[in-house]
Computed example of a mutant assay.
Amino acid sequence: MIETVAGATLERPLITFALFAFNQEKYISEAVEGAFSQTYERLEIILSDDCSSDRTFEIMQEMAAEYKGPHRVLVRRNTFNLGTALHAQSAFSQSSGALLVVAAGDDISAPERVEVMFQAWAKAGFPEGVIHSGRKVFRDGLVLDVIPAIRTPYTGRELEGYAKSFWLPAAAPTCAYTRGVFERFPPLMGGSIIEDVPLLFRAALIGKYISIDSALVRQRLHEDNRGTRYIISRPGRWNYFMLSKIIAFRNMQSDLNERNADIDERTARRIEVNILSVIKSSSKLLLPEFRRIGLMSKTVIMFKMLASPSVARTVRYRLEYALSFFGFGIHIALKSYVRGFIGGFSGGKSAIREKDS
């Protein structure tokens, strides 16, 4: 008999599917249907709303009331908007599963998502850490790309990667976290919309990454994505993003200090230097909110981003950040074009322009 978690054995444990939403009434029905369709049998579903101002929470309640399936369903709402990091923390505090499978209110999970993730976790021996998968990116009913699980030059050696500034070894919408990622650390710091960066770092500190190439999540792109529209013409929103980065990386610094006895001192020192570099560069990108930002100021900030490895490891990602200053449309359109061009040039698969079924 394997050790018990939440009253079930790890041979077939209770798993939590946590669906996080905020002002996503246009998409939440499909996201909830994806949760309800899961084939894994010992499943609790938490539908969690971060104090939406639209009908997101009401739709969740209505769908939960009509649900007749085998899963346990909890609908909850924060009394005020917490931001993504504390939202994840608060939902976890009400969960019972050995694994927390996360989902966004505008994405759609494949019915087999939890089952496939559990099988991969079981095959690896139930380690602490994170399980992540591939994803299918779509917009307006068209599939733009099918992306396998992220691989970096440091896959399997994630802490070494963090010492080299590889900050995101997995795609946030595809992840599932073991309980230790939350329980072995203090609560996530509030005020940030970035939860994946500190959670993935915690997974590297205490366990391992398990990757699944299958596209288990359909990731929707639209102009209201939580991680988009951070542009110079909306400096308040951009500053919220920059402050969220500062908080997220400060959280990482604190977590590193919490666990530094468990890792090589030289590696810990290099990781902290990189963390502090991101905090410093992010603070330099805060914008004035009470005066017009001229073309010269925009250009200076864009070049700061392009020149700073602490903003992103590769020039490609730095360019994507810089393009985001001009709005979501040109950013995504150019990124998709470049992906397609590179795929065609290399003989690989270009963006898929077919109906998403």
Rank of each mutant, 00 (worst) to 15 (best):
M1L: 14
E3N: 15
T4A: 09
T4G: 04
A6R: 01
E11Q: 13
I15L: 15
I15P: 08
Q24Y: 02
E25K: 13
K26L: 06
Y27R: 12
A31R: 05
A31I: 07
E33V: 01
Q38F: 08
E41R: 15
E41A: 15
R42D: 07
L47T: 05
L47K: 07
Q61I: 07
K68W: 01
P70Q: 06
R72Q: 11
R76Q: 07
N81M: 04
G83D: 04
G83M: 02
A85K: 08
S90W: 12
A91Y: 05
A91L: 11
F92H: 14
S93Q: 13
Q94A: 03
S96L: 15
S96C: 15
A98I: 05
A98G: 15
L100H: 11
V102S: 08
V102E: 09
G105K: 08
A110I: 00
A110G: 00
E115L: 14
F118S: 07
A122Y: 08
A124S: 13
G125V: 03
P127C: 11
G129L: 11
H132Q: 13
R135W: 11
K136D: 03
V137L: 12
D140I: 00
V143A: 10
L144W: 11
L144K: 08
D145T: 01
V146F: 07
P148M: 14
A149T: 07
I150W: 01
R151I: 04
R151L: 12
L159G: 06
F166I: 12
P169W: 05
A171G: 05
A172T: 02
A176W: 02
Y177H: 02
T178N: 04
R179A: 08
E183T: 13
E183N: 11
E183H: 05
F185W: 03
P187K: 05
G190A: 13
E195N: 12
P198R: 07
L205V: 00
I206Q: 03
Y209K: 07
I210M: 06
D213K: 09
S214C: 01
I231Q: 08
I231M: 09
R234I: 00
P235H: 07
G236V: 09
G236I: 03
Y240Q: 10
Y240K: 13
L243W: 06
R250D: 01
S254N: 12
N257Y: 12
E258L: 10
A261R: 12
D264K: 03
T267I: 13
V278N: 10
K280E: 14
S281F: 03
L286V: 11
R292C: 02
R292H: 13
L295S: 13
T299D: 05
V300H: 08
A307E: 04
V315F: 15
V315H: 05
Y317K: 13
Y321V: 09
A322P: 01
F328K: 01
A333Y: 06
K335N: 00
S336Q: 12
G340L: 00
S346L: 14
G347W: 05
S350P: 15
S350W: 09
E354I: 07
K355Q: 07
